[in-house]
């Protein structure tokens, strides 16, 4: 009986999760002393900005373009969405510089680094589709400029920047799902492997 239970995928998955990421590792009470530095703040700041962007994006989706183009509150939420993206990229790039400078892929953290880099690229695609979803002359101009670049790669056959509906769906459905999954995986990897120590304080890590 117990062997049957042990073979269940739910049991095996639970044991694997418990072994890889126990609760005290997922939500630790303390962090190493070297984490007390401003350079470690920018990762969390990126997460906060992303939450703000998703929140304001949900509000924009509820009320629609006519609202965000003509009403004061719509303008305000639209601006919050824009400036949230500015803060998101600002913090993410400083985070990237910091992690590059401390060679954050050390100690078996290569997948953490790779997921961060892929998230950066996915964020750029999300922002570009956002430009195309503004429903104004700016988005029309950008789409007609972008089509030549995309078409020169052959990608225009499946990714048509002149197709507003497709770009909007990529911006508000596909890319947010991809980003949330990537960021979630990235954060879980950070929790599993721990925050990378400074090179000078722990030189033997990752050698």
């Amino acid at each position: 009986m117990s062997s049957t239970v042990d073979r269940q995928w739910t049991t095996r998955l639970r044991k694997r999760v418990e072994g890889t990421l126990p609760p005290e590792k997922l939500l630790p009470d303390t962090q190493p002393a070297y984490v007390a530095s401003w350079i470690y703040v920018f990762g969390v700041l990126t997460l906060v900005a992303m939450a703000e962007v998703i929140g304001t994006g949900v509000i924009l989706a509820i009320f629609g373009p006519q609202w965000w183009h003509v009403s004061s509150l719509g303008h305000f939420i639209n601006s919050l969405h824009l400036w949230g993206v500015e803060v998101f990229f600002f913090a993410m790039i400083v985070h990237l510089w910091g992690k590059f400078a401390m060679a954050a892929w050390r100690g078996g953290r290569s997948l953490t680094w790779v997921t961060g880099a892929v998230t950066f690229l996915a964020s750029i695609l999300t922002a570009f589709t956002g430009y195309l979803s503004q429903t104004n002359f700016d988005s029309q101009w950008i789409s007609t400029q972008a089509k030549d670049g995309i078409n020169s790669t052959g990608g225009g056959a499946i990714f048509n920047v002149l197709n507003f509906g497709q770009m909007l769906m990529w911006h508000i459905v596909l890319m947010p799902l991809v980003l949330v999954a990537l960021v979630g995986f990235h954060v879980i990897l950070v929790r599993i492997k721990g925050v990378v120590p400074p090179i000078v304080e722990n030189p033997e890590v990752g050698q």
Binding site: S37, W38, I39, V41, F42, I93, V94, W97, G98
Partner: peptide, 8 residues
């Protein structure tokens, strides 16, 4: 961004 990086 550079200023924030150096300050951090």
């Amino acid at each position: 961004m550079v200023a924030a990086f150096v300050a951090a």
